[in-house]
Amino acid sequence: MSISYTILVTIIALLILFLCLSWVFVSIKVANKEQKEETAERRYFLYTASYALGAVAVGAAAWPLIDQMNPDASVKALATTEVDISSIGLGKTITVLWRGKPIFIRRRTQEEISEAQNVNLNELKDPQKDEDRVKKSEWLVMTGVCTHLGCVPLGNKGDFGGWFCPCHGSHYDTSGRIRKGPAPTNLEIPKYEFVDNNTIKIG
């Protein structure tokens, strides 16, 4: 990233130098009162080129000041978390932190699973099969962040036996799908895999 940025800035600087020389050249011509028509046209071109290049230069100068606010290298480095799930009882949920966000890991009961699987997809705001949301139907792993405005939904609450967000009243079902309220989409499924029967790697 730093190399390409250096090259970009160098090219812009060279172009600006070239443009300055062109201005000097045209100014000399005007001073000598030669070829009036032609220089007018050249100057018009130079104005446009100057503004365009100026805009590019301002953009290139502003970009580092904007990009510094994006997630930095140390934040990005915290990419994966391994979780031991052997102690989670049936019908229990644990919450772990991954990238500063809570991740729900729920060991679902048979009723919850069948309830999630038997929903008519036409009833859903964001239609998705339960099978597409889990790797093993007993284990539901999802980001515990309401897709509305980012609150953490409460478990075993709401009209659909799943989660309920206290902030603005979104109801999620036993598969974490949005059923009622302002949230636009289902609770997100993070990238994860089963390392073995007792361990999940998130990220």
Binding site: M69, P71, K101
Partner: peptide, 23 residues
């Protein structure tokens, strides 16, 4: 994040991370 397409990138830019934190 309600802004279509670029919403999530803007939120990440505001946060400086994947959630509200020290940055």
């Amino acid at each position: 994040s309600a802004i279509p397409i670029v919403g999530d990138s803007i939120v990440g830019w505001l946060w400086g991370g994947y959630a509200v934190g020290s940055p």
